[in-house]
Design a protein around this nucleic acid. Structure first.
Lengths: 239, 239
DNA sequence: ATAAGATACTACGTCATACATATGACGGAC
DNA sequence: GTCCGTCATATGTATGACGTAGTATCTTAT
């Protein structure tokens, strides 16, 4: 865990927080702390390590956010059992920071996830989930049919639809990926919906989403290829 | 970003630290904060958000540890440019804690990405990339053929192969996802390779990977379905 | 005038303390 | 025996102070 590779590593002393993290990590590696175990209280840890409670908190907060620990107020801090979906967060940030000029990568990533989610949804779908999607589609149509400024409403309806599809997978990790990719493509998707609205082609958008619904309810991957591809480009925009 | 779906959601207010993290994240998504930018000082942030400096520090520490931010004493805190190595740490914890739990979501996620990557790789492949994959396969075979404890060598060769496939996509985002998912499934994949070795079924593993190579070089998605599915379960393990 | 050194300044790093708040446990009232 | 209030507990948040490492600036000597 703690690499001592560099020969001058001993000089640049690690930060207090880092040392606390290492101590806790080592304890977990050595099985002194197993999933489900309760850690000593923050003041106790602070006293044991000889550091301030602030530092202990920063360390446990980091581990908590990573899903390693779990803090319950008035109860204590525990080693979480199993992995937490928040462990994907670093990937989110990695993607955010790399979010440069490269639309191509973004579009490819979205197609990849979109198709994958649909394929999984086809397998794991439930009647209730499918029904929800149908309702979302009707809401979609209703939103587009309203008077006035419907942009945000339609965009939200679009998002709701895709969330419902993702929910069909009943997989928190997949759900997370879905959200990430949706967040990354926010701008371009928003713009696309706007374009569709101003040029009066909303019906195409709705039509495309109905086709997705049909593929889902058909419970087969037949024709998924082109439908997705077409829908995808309609939704995301040109290239 | 912040879903307000449930009607009783308004009660369970997010923690202060989480809110700070969200604010900073949003700023990065909206490009108000770009890589390299300097954040206001901690007291300034605390004042701006109306929270204590402690909370700001916990938030920035978390983001720093994830490689999103970078703090230089006496200078300030900056949005770090590019992917930091520390981003893998959360996955390491995933490995530590992931021992014999429920892998269903993980397996589905991996199949999703694996298939997606292959489909994209089929489209975007290059002769050089394909050649690299062939070499990796030969190294794979060589590693398995050696005497003694070949587990780590074979496992590494397996990873190298999949990395080469991912590289075929020439898409940094896809590459990142590939790495994350691979790290998340580290334990189970490692175990599978071990089983294959001890039961003398390494040739099946190699055979399966050659089939992937063939699908790639055939430049068509014909037969990709079952091949991937079979290879996948062979690689990842039972169910 | 230039370069080396001393000084002040800045902003993160750490610590100490106090108070707020949610949860569970105990115990009394009905 | 059930219900409700109270208290203990441990995390959540806030505030203030001091330490420390860079950076910039000013001083001084060559």
């Amino acid at each position: 865990m703690t690499e001592q590779a560099g020969y001058l590593k001993s000089l640049k002393s690690e930060s207090v927080v880092q040392r606390v993290i290492n101590c806790l990590t080592d304890a977990m590696v050595n099985k002194e702390l197993k999933p489900g175990d309760k850690l000593p209280t923050e003041p106790e840890l602070a006293a044991a390590f000889g550091v301030a409670r602030t530092s202990v908190r920063e360390a446990t907060k980091i581990l908590t956010y990573m899903g390693v620990l779990e803090s319950r107020r008035s109860e204590g801090t525990f080693v979480s059992s199993g992995f937490q979906e928040s462990m994907i967060d670093p990937m989110v940030y990695g993607i955010i920071l790399n979010q440069g000029e490269d639309f191509q990568s973004l579009i490819e990533l979205r197609e990849l996830t979109e198709v994958g989610i649909l394929r999984l949804a086809i397998k794991k779908q439930s009647p209730e989930g499918l029904e929800l999607i149908r309702r979302r589609l009707e809401e979609f149509e209703a939103a587009a049919a309203r008077e006035g400024d419907v942009l945000e409403a339609v965009f939200q309806a679009d998002n709701n639809f895709h969330d419902a599809v993702s929910a069909l997978c009943q997989n928190s990790l997949v759900d997370k990926i879905n959200r990430v990719v949706r967040m990354l493509t926010y701008a371009v998707r928003h713009e696309t919906v706007e374009t569709m609205l101003t040029t009066g082609r909303v019906h195409e958008l709705i039509q495309a989403h109905w086709r997705i619904y049909e593929v889902l309810s058909s419970k087969t991957e037949e024709g998924l290829e082109e439908i997705i591809h077409n829908t995808y480009f309609l939704d995301v925009g040109r290239e």
